[in-house]
Design a protein around this nucleic acid. Structure first.
Length: 774
DNA sequence: AATAGAGCCTAC
DNA sequence: TAAGGTAGGCTCTATT
């Protein structure tokens, strides 16, 4: 036992705290085994942030617990360290006008043991009427020592706010009369809290946004008595050389069944660490000892494998765990390891009495379908293939991905033959096993690693999350960063109306008519095979008539040139005219077609930007009326037409209310097979879905159809051109960033071919690295 | 036999 | 719990 833990043991503290310290100690011991010693004193260190996770720490002097973020760094020499960054979680609360101070005082008393601080801050609130005049809204920024305390108070206040909002909805007509009075009773201060904001921002995301800290970036890390300080090193662009381990297991299985960790065995585990291959075979399943082998499908994808043959599965597991502690990977890479390899390893380890989390720090979350550790990343390439590779669902297996992305044909074995081959053709099964590790490793190194760690430098999350989250969540994170920088308060999640009607019918769903695809003609066309054309002469007539107008538009608007600066206008015009006249004269033709591929680059971002489209820009008359800029002849309101489409139930509103009354007095089956309970005891959402079910049955019976034909309606939206631009700014900066990197990439590709021509290997490597980076 | 609807997958 | 959107083709099943 080391000195540190002895000191803790001697300290006389409360039971729960002592228990926590022992646990913390175990965690730190394990992380130390993987190279992440806590950096607590000494000179500043340079580190590349690999990953982060929320955590807590005990203050030895006060005996209190604080939430903090654990930061895991990799140094330039390949070693690693960890640091704990104390940060107070918080959320915002809005009060009735001029009640901020009273509510603050009240909350401080009511949650004395939980709230550390309350600050009254002014935020840009895009929901606030007339906010463009410079009006800000006051919010109480309520801070806590721990996330748990935040959650407790939030839960309490959410109920309060929900109640208050319901009350204010009901009494909206009288509100102006009531706010005149100032009452002092404690209960009334609670009534004054009307909204909570940003309470569901994950703690580590909050931390990364507020301190501008991202994974995949270099920092000078300074530790002092006041805490940890990070200084971003924007001069360092290249990623750190972190140890990467890609692995893959082969297991036994019953014929025509999927492997089952309850009784199937691991036959082999093959893995590559920083380009060196290893294979461990389980001789219970493998027919003979395997010698070291090579599998190099392409010169740039080398694979030399050191082989160890062990007598059984438990030896295989022990050896692999021990080897991982020796090489200390910062990143583990799999192909579908979230669902298969890791859970299987965990189950087999448990079967032999090992806890995988104690051995290598990883544990599987069945609900999430993820396998994660605190200090190391698990980057499952399958997640990248699904979200970012643009491969169709039928081509997302490792074999297909290897073909399209790595450009070679991988070894393939029918799963039904694997168990037999391990006994009868062990050499062949060994080659097959390592081939999957090779494919996974190089897929990761060429595509996933550069992509995920570039994305991580702008998205305030750990690499594991950056890899697995949906694109919507990633966009939301970027917007939250932008909102923080613009001092804009984030809106709460939108909740759509549960009970909307259209002309006395309940709406099943409503949406807008989106863009659609038109197919002018289908078939197979080649530029050297004549095709028959049937042209419309009147269309050519129109083109001829508008030729001057169109040419001049192209020159003035698109080309941004003066008409006088064109010297051969008539020459070009006549040449076009001649062709158009010929086409008009002979509309039925047999000709070799010219084949064009027309594409609109970044179309949606550009539509958003040219029209300044963003949620808070969609305004109503009511909003404009309250706005200071609403003057006669204003140019800040742009009107756009759109088409609304709704699907309505065949039943009438009266039928619906009838059914509703009926069901409210009934007992229904619980959602999870529980005993039946009163309809009114169900949650609002469950109630609505039960009621809809009932309505559908009724419609089917009475009207022979559930839904009517979809209804469409042309509607008009007002778009405010003056609205705070932080949404469109986010879109623009993202588009421009892409343009910038695309441009730079072109430059470096040019340098790469120059370097290749000159034969300078250092320059080739440099250019190659830059191309991959960009 | 015709039709509606669900489910899956893809294009953008 | 976490979750981009709509349009639209194809297959299969249930219903009329």
């Amino acid at each position: 036992m080391n000195g540190e833990s002895r000191r803790w043991d001697n300290k006389d503290s409360r039971r729960s705290s002592k228990k926590q310290k022992l646990m913390r100690n175990a965690e730190e011991e394990l992380e130390s085994k993987f190279g992440f010693d806590l950096f607590t004193e000494g000179d500043k260190r340079l580190g590349w942030l690999l990953t982060l996770s929320s955590s807590s720490l005990d203050d030895e002097e006060t005996g209190r617990v604080y939430s903090c973020v654990d930061l895991y760094f990799v140094s330039q020499d390949g070693s690693a360290f960890k640091s704990k960054y104390k940060f107070r979680p918080y959320f915002y609360a809005a009060t009735k006008e001029k009640m901020e101070m009273d509510v603050e005082g009240y909350l401080r008393r009511r949650y004395e043991s939980q709230i550390v601080d309350i600050e009254i801050v002014k935020k840009e609130d895009l929901d606030l009427k007339n906010h463009l005049s410079g009006l800000h809204k006051s919010y109480l920024k309520i801070s806590f020592a721990t996330v748990q305390q935040l959650m407790d108070v939030k839960k309490d206040l959410l109920h309060v706010v929900e109640r208050n909002q319901a009350k204010s909805d009901a009494a909206e007509a009288y509100e102006s009369i009531l706010t005149g009075k100032r009452e002092q009773r404690a209960h009334d201060f609670l009534d004054c809290i009307i909204d909570l904001r940003e309470y569901d921002v994950p703690y580590h995301v909050r931390f990364a946004i507020d301190n501008d800290i991202r994974c995949g970036q270099w920092y000078d890390v300074i530790v002092s008595s006041t805490g940890v300080m990070l200084e971003k090193r924007t001069d360092l662009l290249q990623r750190a050389e972190v140890h990467v381990c890609a692995f893959d297991i082969e297991t036994t299985k019953l014929p025509l069944k999927f492997p089952d960790a309850d009784y199937d065995l691991i036959m082999m585990i093959s893995y590559m660490v920083d380009g060196q291959g290893y294979l461990i075979t389980n001789r219970e399943c493998v027919g003979e000892d395997i010698e070291d082998l090579e599998y190099t499908p392409k010169p740039e994808y080398e694979g030399y494998f050191k082989v160890t043959n062990v007598k059984n599965e438990v030896e295989l597991l022990k050896l692999w765990f021990a080897h991982m502690r020796e090489v200390k990977p910062g990143i583990y890479v799999t192909y579908n390891g979230d669902y298969f390899d890791w859970p299987f390893l965990e189950s087999r380890a448990a079967y032999h009495g090992f806890k995988m989390s104690d051995e290598v720090g990883f544990s599987c979350d069945k609900n999430q379908g993820e396998c994660r550790a605190k200090f190391a990343c698990h980057l499952d390439c399958f997640a990248w293939v699904k979200r970012d590779s643009y491969l169709p669902q039928g081509s997302q297996g490792l074999k297909a991905v290897t073909k399209t992305k790595l450009g070679y044909d991988p070894l393939e074995v029918n799963p039904e033959d694997m168990v037999r081959f391990a006994k009868e053709k062990p050499q062949m099964m060994a080659s097959y096993s390592v081939s999957d590790a090779v494919a996974t490793y190089y897929l990761y190194m060429t595509y996933v690693h550069p992509f995920i760690f570039s994305l991580a430098t702008i998205i305030p999350m750990s690499p594991d999350e950056v890899l697995r989250k949906g694109s919507g969540t990633l966009c939301e994170m970027l917007l939250m960063v932008q909102a923080y920088m613009a001092n804009v308060i984030c809106p709460n999640k939108h909740q759509s109306d549960q009970e909307k009607f259209h002309k006395s019918h309940l709406l099943e769903s409503e949406t807008y008519i989106g863009g659609h695809v038109e197919c002018l003609e289908s078939g197979v066309f080649r530029s050297d095979l004549p095709t028959s054309f049937k042209l419309d002469p009147s269309a050519y007539e129109l083109l001829i008539k508008n030729l001057d107008r169109d040419l001049q538009y192209a020159i003035r608007v698109e080309g941004k040139m003066d008409l006088d600066s064109i010297s051969n206008y008539d020459e070009v015009k006549n040449a076009i005219m001649e062709k158009l006249v010929l086409l008009r004269a002979e509309p039925v033709r047999e000709e070799c077609p010219l084949i064009y591929h027309l594409d609109v680059a970044a179309m949606y971002p550009n539509i958003i930007l040219t029209n300044r489209l963003q949620p808070p820009s969609i305004v109503t008359d009511e909003i404009c009326t309250a706005c200071d800029f609403n003057r006669p002849g204003k140019t800040c309101l742009r009107k756009l037409e759109w088409v609304w489409r709704g699907e309505i139930f065949t039943a009438k509103k009266s039928d619906y209310y009838h059914l509703k009354k009926q069901i409210e007095s009934e007992f229904v089956d619980g959602t999870d097979g529980q005993l039946s309970k009163s309809f009114l005891d169900l949650s609002k959402i469950d109630q609505q879905s039960k009621l809809k079910e009932r309505l559908k049955k009724y419609c089917q019976k009475a009207y022979k159809r559930v839904l009517d034909k979809p209804v469409t309606e042309v509607r008009e939206a007002g778009i405010c051109m003056r609205e705070n631009s932080f949404y469109v700014d986010t879109v623009r900066s993202f588009r421009d960033r892409r343009y910038e990197y695309k441009g730079l990439n072109k430059v470096w590709k040019g340098k790469l071919s120059e370097a290749k021509a000159s034969g300078n290997s250092i320059k080739i490597q440099e250019a190659h690295d830059m191309v991959v980076l960009l």
